[in-house]
Design a protein around this nucleic acid. Structure first.
Lengths: 235, 235
DNA sequence: AAAAACCTCCCCAAAATTGGGGAGTAGAAA
DNA sequence: TTTCTACTCCCCAATTTTGGGGAGGTTTTT
């Protein structure tokens, strides 16, 4: 099975369950202990497809490990893939977490790729194995690029399933409306923003209101949040 | 030159200027019109390394194209790489922008990969060429994976140079603070959010204030914007 | 050329947010 | 064990934001 085959297999996936199956196929193909795709958001909602035992998943949820898992923590701050050995295992909680994980069949080695999508979407693609440091290093060197591509395709599919449709239509804001949203997102009060733009506060208000309506937002904060999420503005 | 060579070349880069040189080497290697890495940031500041003429870059800045460039707009909302043809060129402004771009030597074809890093960092890696639709399609099919890996390495390097250090610390918010931010981002008023959480509004206020301080935000809207940008919450 | 959207300005009163205080419990970390 | 952080509750008054109105001129789009 070549990388191309894997990608095509992924692209044929029609539902979330297919992703689950694919992790199992990948595990066999690469002869690793686990392959996991893991969707994280900080409010604790999650979706995962992977080969971890359900016992471990339950345990993870029960213990609320999401809140302290060094893998998630570390990947969240980094851009590039991380070998688990590079992470911060200094706290006691982290070490006991690792011990617990291994006892539930998670490999002693791991390589996790952080993936970010629009709207702050964040996911992880993990390969875990039980082996020596040297063997692991060789394995990762040989396959890092493949995993990167696979992780990307995985997330693409997951995003498709998640949002239902691919492109969500975003209301177009006028330049002034965008600027207004931008200033608010930067922490300016209305008065300050109006000052900065050298227009009356009343005028600024009109823009904010217009933007709010277009975005279907309930209040200013909501409007700014939407504008950010939709990528209309950047902080 | 293999992909591995390119990656190694990238990893040897010691400064931003090296990235510039590498785009030129890549252009020759792939025999395309342009290769551009483009960092889109907060306040309209940008950093670019690429083979576009300085005339075009100046023009772009002068005309404030950043605000309406369909490539940037489209990529920001998507996860996967985009062929320029898939973008929305329906507005008059977009069409005249394209015409202008081509007159400044940008190719008629383009393929842009959105890349996201921690803290809402966003960048684009673009390959542009002047050729027919068929030739272009074949070219992209053959090289998409390579470009993806290269884009990733490019951004990794750029992040290194930009931040100096690798890990930027995001303030950790407590669970309650996160929830509070989340509710606000969803458009709840304080009163509504407090109701939903079944705590007094005063308590909720304490969370919001705490979050605001941790995030170094000037007001609630700013705090929510920051929390979103840092990926602490998702709408 | 007409229609639509955009930019600018103004008023008022109700509602919400903010800025300070302070205080007690529980649990984790040092 | 002590210290620290997180969670919960309360008061008050100043300030800001919001939700409606309306009006005139300039660009785009159709």
């Amino acid at each position: 099975m070549t990388l191309q085959d894997i990608i095509e297999r992924l692209q044929r996936a029609k539902a979330l369950e297919d992703l689950q199956t694919i992790t199992e196929e990948l595990r066999e193909h690469y002869a690793t202990t686990h392959i996991v795709y893991h969707w994280v958001n900080s409010i604790g909602e999650r979706f995962g497809a992977g080969t971890y035992s359900t016992d471990w998943v339950d345990r993870y949820l029960e213990k609320d490990y999401l809140r302290m898992d060094p893998v998630i923590f570390g990947c969240f701050q980094r851009f590039h893939p991380v070998d688990w050995k590079q992470l911060d295992w200094s706290t006691k909680a982290a070490r006991s977490f690792l011990k617990d994980a291994i006892s539930f069949g998670v490999g002693n080695q791991g390589y996790t790729i952080p993936i970010r999508g629009p709207n702050g979407q964040f996911a992880l693609f993990t390969v875990s194995h039980t082996t020596t440091d040297e063997a692991w290093e060789g394995f990762i060197q040989a396959n890092a690029h493949d995993f990167m591509i696979i992780a990307h395709e995985f997330n693409k599919k997951a995003l498709e399933f998640e949002t239902g449709t691919e492109v969500v239509s975003v209301p177009a804001l006028s330049p002034r409306e965008l600027t207004a949203m931008s200033y608010l997102a930067k922490g300016f009060s209305r008065a300050q923003a109006a000052d900065e733009l050298k227009i009356s506060e009343h005028t600024l208000r009109v823009y904010i209101e217009a933007a709010r309506h277009k975005l279907g937002a309930l209040n200013t904060t909501h409007a700014v949040a939407r504008a950010l999420s939709c990528g209309l503005i950047v902080v």
